[in-house]
Write a protein that binds this DNA or RNA. Structure first.
Lengths: 149, 149
DNA sequence: TCAGATACTATCATTTTAGTAGTAAGTCAC
DNA sequence: GTGACTTACTACTAAAATGATAGTATCTGA
């Protein structure tokens, strides 16, 4: 993953946004999670100009969210597949979607659990306490790794 | 920008991004959650050009994430405070930050639970099943409101 | 040989952003 | 009541990003 940037913001939100801070990148990741892998699939799905798509795919690849993978030798063709870091972005996508479902007008699509057939209700919690994010006071701090007081 | 579909995208992610699809807007919301409310506080915190800040604050206000509030009559001064929809965005901010903590290098700040003093481990779950988001197959669908099969 | 598929690049007009300076309304200090 | 200061902006211009469209390169199959 790219980290050799000039000034590294210590705020994790700001740092994350240096990788996925624009609409197209996030929509590409959304489509990648839906199974799209090829240039023309993204282009048609998003209606994005090919110049922009080229640049976005290159930066997501450089940043380690996608990787290029040869899927045909003759003719040589490459596809873009999610890396581990890219797949790890799925909860963020769903939380953005859930926010929109709660706060935006319009008949938006819902997330359905395939096994139960029921609508998913995505929430963020602290895995340590189980408390809903935002329900308890929180602060930011720098912690040494392994500091297990 | 054309987010692929007709006027209102049915994909909740695309729809949400029409409101918060750029870095500055998200960083303004982050700062607002940290307690900042005034033009110059945001400007100094972010190092953003005042023209851009004016536009972003106006669009966040128009979109209902912030609202202007008179905090001094003499001289007349207004501040920007989070609305309910703006406060509801906090889990998204934390999930973005948590993604960066897991996937980006650098000594990023951590989220600390003030009561326990322990580091928070933000995860997304489905409140219905309790399953971690992404751990079970999921699909998108249109559901009638009140469809409670 | 020729149409078609795929994954782009080139070009250029338009839009957006960044950087800096300046403005308007008021306060406070003397 | 003059001048320094605060706050919340707007004006202006240069630089960068984006969007739209056209074109290229490589290969396939008919």
């Amino acid at each position: 993953m790219n980290t050799s940037n000039e000034s590294l913001p210590q705020c994790p939100v700001a740092r994350g946004l240096t990788f996925v801070g624009d609409t197209w990148s996030i929509l590409i990741l959304r489509d990648a999670h839906e199974g799209l892998t090829r240039f023309d699939q993204f282009r048609k799905s998003l209606g994005i100009a090919p110049t922009i798509l080229t640049r976005r795919l290159a930066s997501l690849t450089k940043d380690g969210l996608l990787e290029k993978h040869l899927y045909s030798e003759r003719p040589p063709r490459e596809e873009y597949v999610l890396t581990e870091a890219g797949r790890d972005f799925l909860p963020v996508l769903i939380m953005i979607g859930a926010w929109a479902q709660r706060n935006c007008d319009g008949n938006l699509a819902r997330y359905i659990d395939v096994e139960t057939g029921r609508e998913i209700e995505p929430i963020g919690i602290d895995a340590v306490t189980g408390a809903k994010l935002g329900s308890r006071p929180m602060r930011m701090g720098l912690v040494q790794k392994g500091d297990d007081t």
